[in-house]
Design a protein around this nucleic acid. Sequence first.
DNA 1: TTCCCGCCATACAAAAATGTATGACGAGCG
DNA 2: CGCTCGTCATACATTTTTGTATGGCGGGAA
Lengths: 283, 283
Amino acid sequence: MDWSDLRIFLAIAREGTLGAAARKIGQTQPTMGRRLRALETSLGQTLFQRTADGLVLTDEGAAVLRHAERIEDEALALERHVSGAETQLDGLLRLSSSDWFGTVMLSPVIAAFGKRHPKVTVELLTDARLYRLPRREADLVFRIKPFSEPEVISRKLLHIPYALYGKKGSKPPRAGDGGAVRVVTMNAEFADMPDAVWLKRALPNAAIASRSNNRQVQAELCASGDGFAVLPRPLGDRDRRLVALDVGTAPPGRDTYVGYHRDLRRLARLRALLDIVIERLAG
Amino acid sequence: MDWSDLRIFLAIAREGTLGAAARKIGQTQPTMGRRLRALETSLGQTLFQRTADGLVLTDEGAAVLRHAERIEDEALALERHVSGAETQLDGLLRLSSSDWFGTVMLSPVIAAFGKRHPKVTVELLTDARLYRLPRREADLVFRIKPFSEPEVISRKLLHIPYALYGKKGSKPPRAGDGGAVRVVTMNAEFADMPDAVWLKRALPNAAIASRSNNRQVQAELCASGDGFAVLPRPLGDRDRRLVALDVGTAPPGRDTYVGYHRDLRRLARLRALLDIVIERLAG
DNA sequence: TTCCCGCCATACAAAAATGTATGACGAGCG
DNA sequence: CGCTCGTCATACATTTTTGTATGGCGGGAA
């Protein structure tokens, strides 16, 4: 695989047609087509469906896109490092977290922080894509995957227990079976999360009623009777319509990590927010 | 910077000479030399010191090496994934909506749909970017912006009223002023939303405590005392810690639209879900 | 039904990249 | 000191890649 072909792939994925990608990149439409075919041949996979309107990513192409975006992030980090670029922020802190974590765990802390430091505006983004620290899209990122980038300063913040929940009054399922019951679980993109894997093992014969990338949606679906769901306890326990169930084993919890770019470690307001986050959540 | 040059760079760094790198990569020594010079020119840095024995990394080169190795790791991960590729989905519907709408409005409907049609798996994505119907990233999209693409079949689903909320027990602000009170509002990207504009007009002297792209985060921040917030009534009214406030005028509501690609209009399960969505929400 | 537009794929020409051959240089050895 | 070897850099030939022109196809509009 020629790594430059991935750049072409990214352009095509983002622009949707060979011609638009060519304009973006400064080459021509036939070249885009040839380079894409070369990449597909090299990988042995079809990455796009060709339509009259342009190219649409296949599932495989979507997976490649995620990798290619990380490669691009790294390439940008390289260029940023080499150029010595720095930016400035003033009065604002941008945080990124998952939706449920932002709502349930971070909002009270941000409110408390706002009392101590009323002149700092906090912007909390729960859009899953906005957490690429090298792009400075967020100053502080909370996530369950450990940070491995050496330019990111990170720490484990806390461990979150998970549990299997059902709608109050529903008949609990039998562990090891799950036949005739339905479950709500992660969407396909996140089907390999440990709690989703546990659910599949604990209730191997359960049917999947719904999937979502949003834990609060899963909680709501569960509370609406759509099916049993594994949820973080801080989320599940606050909904009175749900009850945690004991089926012999408990699903694995998850660690949550917080990270920020090392260049920001002297930013006073980031230090201040991080201090209160650690005080409130890590204690 | 040509990403393929990084591969050449890695080979030179590891092998120590242009000739050895050339043999490793299957090209020639002059090519290695030219490509390395091209990379150094592109980055504006000297990556190797040339010696009689070969090339030795400079400090800058060592830093680039770390980035290049991560890029290589990612490229290898991509290739590993692709070689073990698996695909195929069956009986799936992918929906996309905002986070609060998915949780509060759609989840009960999806649960009801699941009872009528238990063999369809619904995947609800609340990631704001996943709504490009021509790309088939979602089968059904719910959003407040009307669809203008001619290949999308859409309709207005319902009108959602909004209101100003405060934490129960808090002193309501005076319209036209807002001095000495704090508000929670949309992040900068969405600051021109009608309800955010209304809030600024209704309480022009209020300080912005926090911003978020997530309405549920805003609700939680409001309930935690961070500040007053304009929220969709279906969200605000279900939280007993909040109370809707009357400051003389009401914020504007929003219409919500649903759309799907015309190619999917004969997809039975999409029709079935759309039918129940309209039945439950548009009535 | 016909025409037009925008898309991708293909054939051939032009440009760019690579390979071959060789020169310059430095280090080690006799 | 001179010779040999291994290195990198350069000039020119060859190969590969890209650009240009164009054909085929599908969809939308008249």
